[in-house]
Design a protein around this nucleic acid. Structure first.
Lengths: 213, 213
DNA sequence: CCTACCGATCGGTAGG
DNA sequence: CCTACCGATCGGTAGG
């Protein structure tokens, strides 16, 4: 039957939909907005520029779609880890694990590049930036606050403002390497030992304030 | 004497030296690297492109000079405030003051723009970025660590690693608004009340760990 | 679908 | 000093 052609034969290997966005994302992350040419996107997606422009009528709209797709795909990355934290019996170990998860999630090359891209284009694309902050950053902060709230109800922590506690935890664990790697485009790598020391110290300071006496 | 011509008459008002760098800085901060044209720099400095290119043979070298000049000019901005902290008798108030100073210094529009510019160009100009981090950021962190060390010797704090304590203080006070303002290009402004709450909470958590019992 | 092209921008130079 | 220009790049289009 002609409708049962082998998958490797069907249409001539052009990317579309998610694949096109993945190709575009690669190009934007590798070269930033200005350096990402529509020719490069089309070539990487193995489609013609004509086809590219039929799906996204301008570079601006392609960029907005790439960021939206990125946020959608990373929406619930933290949830399972926070779920695990809420049922822990060892509060210190639970927080240490979470801090290491934060490092792995945020200090990776693609995440740092996406943050730099969004930051550099925030003035020209304020809505794209605001959507990223709200649906990615704020959402994860709220989920962490909920988890801390839960631990507070279980009498493992003593927290007045769970939002403030969530921010303090996040930044104690994350801010130093995030600042450094961001400013140097990843050139100033942290060693695993340095990160582990940072995690330990962050949790110690956090528990100094919020541990149940 | 011809050498005593009035200052308003001498040469036809063109900028050079520091003035040229100030003009270039304005243009780079307003439009980022790609959007800053050499024509705009020359126009703002009121010199010809020919004169501009005689002083800086390429846009790349002009950019590097602008960042170097920026670091030089901001080199000792923190020193007087840290000096004040080391002789305080009220440790909590001293730290609150310092946190407010950090906010004023780092969360200003030009500083945020310079950080975004350096970040966006860090891959193409790794040496410029590394020099900024070392001479601006690392230096201030070390100065703060020295001040905390001093307070530790005065038995107002109990600190094991003054570098770690300095980083924790900095990021407890600064990271949340810095992250937000950076990602949104300053669109998500913090109210003075929010900043003051943040400062209070940062100092409370910091003292929870490092206050002398 | 594909290629060739337009129109605009901009770093850098002095050809014309 | 200044203006006009070159050469290259690139978003977007179908003119030619």
């Amino acid at each position: 039957m002609s409708t049962a052609a082998p998958p490797t034969r069907g249409r001539p290997g052009g990317s579309r939909g998610t694949d096109l966005l993945a190709a575009a994302r690669d190009v934007f992350l590798a070269h930033q907005y200005a350096g990402a040419t529509m020719d490069a996107v089309a070539a990487r997606a193995r489609i013609s520029k004509q086809t590219l422009y039929r799906q996204y009528p301008s570079k601006d709209e392609l960029y907005a779609a790439v960021v939206r797709d990125w946020v959608d795909r990373g929406r619930d990355a933290m949830s399972p880890h926070l779920q695990k934290l809420t049922v822990t019996t060892d509060i210190r170990n639970g927080l240490l694990e979470l801090a290491r998860t934060l490092h792995a999630g945020v200090l990776s090359d693609p995440v740092l590049r996406m943050r730099t891209l969004i930051t550099a284009e925030a003035e020209r694309f304020p809505d794209v930036a605001a959507d990223y902050v709200r649906r990615s950053w704020d959402r994860n902060q709220t989920l962490l606050a909920d988890a801390l709230e839960h631990l507070s109800e279980r009498r493992l922590l003593r927290i007045e403002s769970s939002q403030m506690a969530a921010e303090q935890f996040t930044w104690l664990a994350l801010a130093a390497p995030l600042n450094r790697l961001t400013l140097t485009a990843g050139a100033a790598r942290y060693t695993p030992d340095e990160l582990e020391t940072l995690v330990q110290e962050a949790v110690t300071t956090f528990l100094g304030r919020y541990e149940m006496p």
